[in-house]
């Protein structure tokens, strides 16, 4: 396990070094994503101001919501960006190189690529959560919960992403299907938290676990609910186990291909 993690960290460092070789593109990507997220949060805050509190959600909560969502997406796609390239790897046959590696193919694949622009999401996410803590006047317990909520949101997002992109082992036309599934999963996680009640809430918690990414962490912090954090952790673990199982089942189905590719 130690060797696996050591190599994963090394691979991330190497990819960062490789991306930094193309400095201008690297910085432009990060800056671009930061601007994009800011525009998005301004729009949602304007909406919240206009309509007032919905389902207990205020404009300040929206800052935390969007920050959690950006942090989850940013952390996973920056450090484990290979996951969103899995459909392409499977289609082109370049997944072969992860199976030829003496390391865990899932970790090796996930750390094979970094989505550079996702670093902008991470910065945005952290800055947003700090702003939320200041504007909301959070006490120490709430700050601890805020941090834990972020970690669990990232974990839940990673767990579900593995499952979603592993679908590409089973279904042809993989880019479209997995991209569609991903949108179906992630887009609701950025919606106004007050929009989810009863049936819809259950659906987007248990069937499509979008609420685990940002909405439930915000509610846990706001309501100081350890139960909610525990619930996110439990469901995240279940999704992780299921997703890893799907991934390994997918490896058995993998048929390779002979397209020309470059490696990392």
């Amino acid at each position: 396990m130690y060797k696996e993690l050591r190599f994963a960290l090394y691979a991330i460092r190497k990819f960062l070094q490789s991306s930094a070789e193309l400095r201008t593109s690297f910085l432009m990507n990060i800056f671009g994503m930061f601007i994009n997220n800011t525009a998005f949060i301004v729009m949602w805050m304007a909406f919240s101001h206009a309509v007032g509190t919905i389902g207990g959600w205020t404009a300040i909560d929206i800052i935390a919501l969007e920050s959690y969502a950006a942090l989850s997406l940013g952390t996973v796609f920056f450090f484990f960006g290979g996951i969103q390239k899995l459909p392409q790897y499977v289609l082109s046959g370049s997944f072969d190189r992860f199976l030829l590696s003496p390391k865990n193919p899932l970790l090796r694949m996930m750390t094979s690529h970094m989505m550079v622009s996702a670093f902008g999401d991470i910065i945005f996410g952290i800055a947003g959560l700090v702003l939320y803590a200041v504007l909301g006047g959070l006490n120490l317990t709430s700050i601890v919960m805020l941090v834990l909520g972020g970690i669990l949101g990232v974990f839940a997002f990673l767990a579900t992403s593995i499952g979603i992109f592993s679908v590409s082992f089973f279904i042809m036309d993989t880019n479209i299907v997995s991209r569609g599934l991903f949108e179906l999963y992630f887009t609701p996680s950025m919606y106004h938290g007050g929009a989810f009640s009863s049936g819809l809430r259950a659906f987007f918690t248990y069937v499509i676990p979008s609420l685990l990414v940002a909405i439930l962490p915000v509610e846990a912090t706001r309501n100081q609910s350890w139960e909610t954090l525990g619930f996110i952790a439990l469901l995240g673990c279940l999704w992780f186990a299921l997703s890893v199982y799907i991934f390994h089942l997918g490896i058995r189905k993998y048929e390779s291909a002979n397209f020309m590719t470059f490696g990392t």
Binding site: K14, S18, D96, M260, T261, G263
Partner: peptide, 14 residues
């Protein structure tokens, strides 16, 4: 060890 002629294992930018 494995070498696939149509596929590179090397890091292109480094």
């Amino acid at each position: 060890g494995t070498v696939f002629g149509q596929r590179s294992q090397l890091l292109p930018n480094l």
